[in-house]
Nucleic acid binder design. Sequence first.
DNA 1: TTAATTCCTCCAGCGGCTGGAGGAGCAAGC
DNA 2: GCTTGCTCCTCCAGCCGCTGGAGGAATTAA
Lengths: 139, 139
Amino acid sequence: MEISIGELSKRTGVLATTVRYYEDVGLMPAPPRTAGGRRSYGQAHVARLAFIRHARQLGFEVDAIRELLALNARPELPCAEVDVIARRHLAEVDGRIERLTALRAELSRMVGECGHGRVGECRVIEVLSDHGECLGDRH
Amino acid sequence: MEISIGELSKRTGVLATTVRYYEDVGLMPAPPRTAGGRRSYGQAHVARLAFIRHARQLGFEVDAIRELLALNARPELPCAEVDVIARRHLAEVDGRIERLTALRAELSRMVGECGHGRVGECRVIEVLSDHGECLGDRH
DNA sequence: TTAATTCCTCCAGCGGCTGGAGGAGCAAGC
DNA sequence: GCTTGCTCCTCCAGCCGCTGGAGGAATTAA
């Protein structure tokens, strides 16, 4: 099975430019080339790229993915480290949700108080002008 | 009241480098300079920068803030446009929370299924390798 | 053979800053 | 008046994770 970068792109849903970028940053290995100098991929590349794509979709950073790929290549190791990376990311996502939820409450209150009059009396503008108007000071 | 960029930074909590950046991108006006060529700010600058900072903390994009600032300068206009910008942003935040929450569920399931054995049998790695393992296909 | 398509490399740009280099201004102490 | 140390100046590069364009070479289809 010898696949062009375009075909690899089609099978994984990752843009060809992005595949080359992954090669640059060391997520994908430099594949063999055809006589004409074009990248030629095999089944292992498809699997690896699918792994990367999925991890990215789940929000893992490139550095974390590099670690996960390294661990994936050593199936005999205990998976404690995998667990650490995933839990760290989960905590990070939790934090993001929390911050966004607090922010959403503030925004929603602001919008709800807008009396649809003139800008000069608009609560949205007032709240933005004065941080003291906010419920939470976390942001 | 004549204030240096450092003092402005202290009063608003915005880094001096960031203030200069805001000037570059047109959020802050170019202030008058001292004889020695240093930026000199007044009360209006402090208020404007506080407004910008607060809007950024609430997640508004720089483009949206530019619009909000322009509207703020025209208090006689109806505030419908302010409302549109704020509601648009609220919807955007809602979308982000929704996506993150779905992602969190997937991550949490993954982590929960990890049997703390070897990498070769780790569910986290398996799920990452095979998108079919996921509950939602939204990501 | 020619035309269309795909691929190549290199480089720049997105957003929203942040930091460093290398230099000049300025306030306070001696 | 001079030095020391701080702040400020401009310019430029880098962060993350891509994305797209220019200009050219290779491949494929008609």
